[in-house]
Simulated assay, not measured.
Amino acid sequence: MRPLTKLIVMGGSWGGIQASLSILEGLPPDYSIPIVLVLHRLRNQEGNLQEIFSKKLLLKAVEVEEKEPLLPGHVYLAPANYHVLFEKDHTFSLDDSELENYSRPSIDVSFSSAADVFGKNTMGILLSGASRDGSSGLKYIFEKGGVAVAQDPSEAEVGTMPQAAIESIRGCTIMNVARIKEFLLSLHEH
């Protein structure tokens, strides 16, 4: 019997927006697990990620705000230029410290923080991307007993990011986008 997933954290870079939209489209509006999405964006680009996700998803897409509580039925988008951290009371904290892996938000930072708070109840999903950001954080989730999923690199627009995770985590689950979506649907509690 595997642990109950209480938080899903997804990360991606190049190709990650499309992959995450494909996964999240079709999840019901009352999806039972909060989902946090950390996508690399160009620095200082406001971008309308929230608008894009709001139009295509049944879930409520919102940009993370300081001290906001994690709620089911939501996709939380990491804001540009901030690392997203998790507090013990299941709220968010935003941090503008140094770049990690040339990135802020850094996927590694969010994955590691999620695992510190949610432990074995964390699921990390690493999608398409051109950097290695995310692989050490995903490994940390796995080491804490959580579930580590990498997008099949052969399907990813850029396979570098999921491939780095697969190489560093023995026991990483590899799935294509359609399978990840099915998997998330199977975790939903009505």
Rank of each mutant, 00 (worst) to 15 (best):
M1K: 15
P3N: 12
L4F: 11
T5S: 14
K6S: 10
I8W: 01
I8S: 00
V9E: 03
G11W: 07
G11S: 04
G11Q: 05
W14C: 13
W14M: 13
G15I: 08
G16I: 00
G16T: 00
I17M: 10
I17W: 02
S22A: 14
L24K: 04
L24T: 04
E25M: 12
L27M: 06
P28N: 15
P29H: 11
D30Q: 15
Y31R: 02
Y31Q: 03
Y31V: 03
P34V: 05
V38Y: 07
V38G: 10
L42Y: 15
R43Y: 12
N44A: 13
N44C: 08
N48V: 10
Q50E: 15
E51H: 11
E51K: 10
I52S: 04
S54Y: 05
K55S: 14
L57M: 12
K60E: 15
K60Y: 08
A61K: 04
V62G: 08
E65N: 12
E65F: 06
E65M: 10
E66H: 11
E66Y: 06
E68H: 07
P69C: 08
L71W: 04
Y76T: 05
A78T: 08
P79H: 02
A80W: 03
A80H: 07
N81T: 09
N81F: 09
H83R: 00
V84L: 13
F86C: 01
K88F: 05
K88L: 09
H90V: 07
H90W: 12
T91S: 14
F92I: 05
S93E: 12
D96F: 12
D96P: 13
E98I: 13
L99W: 09
N101R: 08
N101Q: 08
R104P: 02
R104K: 09
D108H: 05
V109M: 00
F111I: 04
F111L: 03
S113C: 01
A114L: 02
A114T: 04
A114K: 01
D116I: 14
F118G: 06
G119F: 12
G119M: 13
K120L: 09
M123R: 07
I125H: 02
L127N: 09
S128W: 09
G129N: 06
G129E: 07
A130H: 02
A130Y: 05
R132S: 12
R132T: 10
D133Y: 11
G134S: 01
S135M: 07
S136K: 13
G137K: 09
G137R: 10
L138F: 09
K139Y: 13
Y140A: 14
F142C: 04
E143Q: 14
K144F: 00
A148F: 02
V149Y: 01
V149K: 02
A150K: 02
Q151R: 03
A156E: 07
E157Y: 14
E157L: 14
E157K: 15
E157I: 15
V158P: 09
G159P: 08
G159I: 00
T160Y: 08
T160S: 14
P162R: 09
Q163N: 13
A164V: 14
I166G: 01
S168D: 11
G171Y: 04
C172T: 12
I174T: 11
M175H: 01
M175V: 01
M175Q: 10
N176A: 03
V177S: 07
V177D: 04
R179A: 13
I180L: 00
E182A: 08
E182Y: 05
F183H: 14
L185P: 00
S186R: 04
S186P: 00
L187M: 11
L187F: 06
H188R: 01
E189N: 11
